[in-house]
């Protein structure tokens, strides 16, 4: 009895497997299709060269300045690439903070800037406090959130002291800076 039932069911099982297979294949092709059908590769839709841009806050005070040798905007993911960028953040009563590197990537909303290769940040000197300099190969800056972070080797130099670490997160206008990944500091001989 069971033998006959088994025979009867076999074609149905085979058909079901085939159906599932074609459904899966269609899905895979769709995904690939999705990107192609728009017809956009990662090609720039506009390029600006050798520029200096200033952004102002609600009271008309300058907030950020951005200089770069080239800005390339990409249509497909709305990201922007900067070559030799120099980004400066200014705030009333605070020393300007500038970051430069070989290149940078900016997210569509412009809130996140990823600086890459020979990143060099400088916070200008103030009365009684020398400048602060940071060097690394990668720095993720969120200007409006006053946040900078890196998970790569980083060096921070300030009057008389030098800190080396494997990672860093700096938050706030008067920043609290957390270093991790084996910290090594040197405080020079007192002046």
């Amino acid at each position: 009895m069971t033998g006959q039932r088994l025979v009867a069911w076999t074609p149905l099982v085979v058909a079901a497997v085939l159906a599932a297979l074609t459904f899966w294949l269609d899905r895979v092709v769709q995904v690939v299709q999705f990107v192609d059908s728009r017809g956009f590769g990662h090609d720039p839709d506009y390029i600006i060269e050798n520029f200096k841009a200033t952004a102002f806050d609600m009271k008309g005070q300058p907030r950020h300045q951005l200089e770069a040798r080239r800005m390339t905007h990409y249509m497909d993911d709305d990201t922007t690439r900067l070559d030799s960028p120099l980004f400066t953040q200014v705030a009333a009563g605070r020393p300007p903070v500038s970051v430069r590197s070989q290149r940078a990537l900016v997210t569509p909303d412009g809130d996140h800037i990823y600086f890459l290769d020979d990143v060099h940040m400088v916070r200008a000197a103030t009365s009684g406090r020398g400048p602060v300099e940071l060097t690394t190969q990668y720095l993720h800056v969120t200007p409006d959130a006053h946040r900078m972070q890196t998970d790569r080797a980083v060096t921070v130099r300030q009057a008389g002291s030098n800190i080396q670490a494997g990672s860093m997160v700096a938050e706030g206008e008067d920043p609290i800076i957390r270093f991790g990944g084996k910290v090594r500091s040197v405080y020079e001989k007192r002046g």
Binding site: I163, D174, I176, R178, F179, K182, V183, R184, S185, V186
Partner: peptide, 17 residues
């Protein structure tokens, strides 16, 4: 007295202000 001070540790928290 005239030598630099070296410090090593796992983590470091700096309060800039």
């Amino acid at each position: 007295r005239d030598k630099p001070v070296h410090v090593e540790s796992d983590t470091l928290k700096v309060d800039d202000a």
